[in-house]
Design a protein around this nucleic acid. Structure first.
Length: 225
DNA sequence: ACGAGGATGCTCT
DNA sequence: GAGCATCCTCGTG
């Protein structure tokens, strides 16, 4: 498994996000076992994004993410992890994008469990069906044992890294607005594999926003590269 | 099947 | 002290 390179992530966030769909997320366990999931749902977060308000790392006047404190990490090396704790329980995995000095990241929302499922079942006793192992950002981070210890570390080398899927399938990609936000809810920056069983069940909480986003949804092509 | 509500801890004001 | 890029449980039907 060849890891994706830092150069892959040192591009426009809106290019990286859909390109990340279909790639593999791999976590090599201390035991030698390898957890593998295929990325099926992501969200993009750009430098001028109102959604940063959710993280409290913006300048109140400009609305832009500020390069200090936690915000500084979003300006860091492309391909490194930005890990965030949500609601006191669940770890959110992001990968930093854009050339160094420019803020951006892709938030991984769901993967398809491909290998190491026995370990995932142990870590997720609440799961009923196989898709429940990884069909949400807090779920797959629990299944993959991802937490704060990966913050700032490269996702371009073991033990935790992204890799190209050798099957090279063409995935039908759909877009929508993002899920669970209070700011930037109209931005159509969510990308997911159309119809895939492992896409998270989440929907935009605001009914009006959901309707607006539905209008903007559409299938686009990937991997003409 | 689906919706409401609570758990929980980190970050910034 | 408030807010939060979630998930799970337990009600109803």
């Amino acid at each position: 498994m060849q890891p994706l390179s830092p150069a892959f992530f040192a591009r426009s966030t809106l290019e990286v996000a859909p390109d990340l769909l279909g790639t593999l997320l791999i976590h090599e366990q201390p035991t030698g076992e390898r957890l593998v999931g295929r990325v099926v749902e992501v969200e993009a977060y750009t430098q001028d994004d109102p959604a940063w308000r959710s993280w409290g790392i913006v300048d109140a006047a400009t609305g832009l993410v500020v390069p200090e404190g936690r915000g500084l990490d979003l300006f860091g090396k492309p391909g490194t992890a930005y890990v965030y704790l949500c609601y006191g329980r669940y770890w959110m995995l992001n990968v930093v994008t854009e050339p160094e000095g420019r803020a951006g990241c892709v938030f991984v929302r769901a993967v398809e469990p491909l290998a190491g499922r026995d370990v995932m079942w142990q870590r997720r006793p609440a799961a009923r069906r196989e898709v429940d192992l990884t069909n949400g950002p807090g779920k797959f981070s629990q299944a993959f044992d991802i937490d704060r210890r990966f913050h700032g570390r490269p996702l371009t080398a073991p033990p935790l890294y992204f890799a190209e899927d050798e099957e090279k399938r063409d995935w039908p990609i759909a877009t929508s607005c993002r899920i669970g936000l209070h700011f930037g809810i109209d931005w159509p920056y969510r990308f997911f594999v159309e119809g895939h069983r492992c896409v998270s069940p989440g929907v935009p909480s605001d009914v009006a926003a959901r309707a607006r986003c539905a209008k903007r949804s559409g299938v686009i092509n990937r991997r003409g590269r």
